Simulated assay, not measured.
Amino acid sequence: MNRTSRMLISAFALVASTSALAAKLTPQECHDYPFVPLKGEVTHAQLMQELEELESVGYNPSAGDDADYPSDIDTAEQRLHAKYETDCHPADHVAANNAAAN
């Protein structure tokens, strides 16, 4: 593969990952599993939604490298929680940023 092709592929991957991270949680997602404890059992659809959310912040379950498990999913969960805080509690996020700046 030549250098130009590698650069284009890298640029595309960067844009795709940035787009995935830029996607905001909807109000419905903010008030649903995995962000809100459930009163009943978790459904298959909810588990698939959680996996999609984890993948949107960089988790790759098919990477096949068990040496990184569970740190890779822990990192993705931390990123997902930060996304939740930013999207679902924007006033708290702004206040925290202002406090950190002072």
Score class of each variant (00 low, 15 high):
47 L>F: 10
63 A>D: 12
77 E>A: 07
98 N>Q: 13
26 T>M: 03
41 E>L: 12
9 I>M: 12
11 A>C: 09
88 C>E: 04
81 H>R: 11
77 E>Y: 01
37 P>T: 02
50 E>N: 02
28 Q>N: 02
39 K>C: 04
41 E>Q: 14
75 T>N: 01
11 A>L: 13
24 K>S: 13
10 S>P: 00
13 A>K: 05
17 S>E: 14
18 T>A: 11
68 D>I: 04
90 P>D: 04
9 I>A: 13
102 N>K: 07
31 H>C: 04
33 Y>L: 02
42 V>Y: 09
83 K>N: 04
55 E>F: 08
10 S>A: 07
93 H>Q: 15
66 D>A: 04
91 A>C: 00
76 A>K: 06
17 S>L: 13
83 K>D: 02
52 E>L: 06
70 P>L: 07
101 A>N: 11
12 F>Q: 15
22 A>T: 00
78 Q>C: 09
5 S>V: 06
29 E>F: 00
65 D>F: 08
63 A>W: 11
21 L>I: 09
40 G>F: 09
99 A>S: 11
52 E>C: 08
75 T>V: 02
5 S>H: 03
64 G>A: 14
66 D>L: 05
64 G>V: 10
72 D>E: 10
12 F>W: 15
68 D>L: 06
2 N>D: 15
19 S>T: 11
33 Y>W: 08
35 F>V: 05
68 D>V: 04
36 V>C: 03
59 Y>S: 05
7 M>F: 10
90 P>F: 05
100 A>I: 09
65 D>P: 01
84 Y>N: 00
40 G>N: 11
62 S>K: 11
97 N>I: 03
100 A>M: 12
56 S>F: 02
59 Y>G: 01
25 L>P: 00
69 Y>L: 00
91 A>D: 03
74 D>G: 03
20 A>K: 10
52 E>G: 09
60 N>R: 10
50 E>H: 07
95 A>T: 09
78 Q>E: 12
91 A>W: 05
95 A>F: 09
26 T>V: 03
35 F>A: 02
90 P>A: 06
32 D>K: 12
15 V>D: 02
94 V>Q: 10
2 N>F: 08
13 A>I: 02
3 R>V: 04
49 Q>L: 01
53 E>Q: 14
75 T>H: 05
10 S>I: 02
34 P>S: 09
19 S>M: 15
3 R>G: 01
77 E>V: 01
79 R>A: 02
66 D>I: 01
22 A>I: 00
